[in-house]
Simulated scan of single mutants.
Amino acid sequence: ERLQREYQNLVNGLVDQGLLEASANEAGFASNVLNPDVINEAVPGNIRRAEHFISFMKKIVEHLKTRLLTVAGPRGGVISETPLAFLHRMITTTSLEAKPLKFAYSRLSSLLRTLQVPNLDDYNALTDVADFASLVATYSEGLPKFAIIMEPNGSSIPGASDPVIQLACLDASLAIAPLFKRFGSVIITSGTLSPIDLYPKLLQFEPRVSESFNMSTFRPCIRPLVITRGSDQLPVSTKFDDRGDMGVVRNYGSMLVEL
Rank of each mutant, 00 (worst) to 15 (best):
E1G: 04
L3T: 02
Q4A: 12
R5W: 07
Q17A: 13
E21G: 06
A22H: 02
A24C: 04
G28V: 12
F29G: 00
A30V: 09
A30N: 06
S31Q: 05
N32S: 10
V33R: 11
V33Q: 07
P36K: 01
D37Y: 13
V38I: 04
I39F: 12
V43C: 03
V43N: 00
N46S: 08
N46A: 09
N46K: 05
I47Q: 00
A50E: 06
F53R: 00
M57F: 02
K58I: 14
I60L: 06
E62A: 15
T66C: 02
T66M: 05
R67Y: 04
L68T: 09
A72N: 03
G73I: 02
V78H: 14
L84Q: 06
H88W: 14
H88T: 15
T93Q: 04
T94N: 03
L101G: 00
K102E: 08
K102W: 05
S109I: 08
R113C: 07
L115K: 01
Q116C: 04
Q116D: 07
Q116W: 01
N119W: 02
D121C: 02
N124V: 15
T127L: 03
V129I: 14
V129K: 01
A133Y: 04
S134R: 08
T138W: 11
T138N: 00
G142R: 05
G142P: 05
I149N: 03
M150P: 00
G154W: 15
S155I: 05
I157P: 00
I157K: 09
P158F: 06
P158R: 08
P158Q: 07
G159V: 11
A160E: 12
D162L: 15
P163C: 03
V164Y: 06
I165D: 01
A168M: 10
C169V: 15
C169G: 09
L170P: 00
L174E: 01
L179C: 08
K181R: 13
G184T: 13
G184N: 10
G184A: 13
G184M: 12
S185K: 10
V186S: 03
I188T: 05
T189H: 09
T189C: 06
T192Q: 04
L193W: 13
S194W: 15
I196S: 03
I196W: 06
I196N: 02
D197S: 12
P200A: 12
F205P: 02
E206R: 12
S212H: 09
N214T: 14
M215S: 11
F218T: 04
I222S: 12
I222T: 14
R223G: 09
P224A: 10
I227A: 09
T228L: 12
R229G: 08
S231A: 15
L234W: 14
F240W: 08
D241R: 11
R243C: 11
V249M: 13
R250T: 15
R250M: 15
L256Y: 15
E258W: 05
L259N: 04
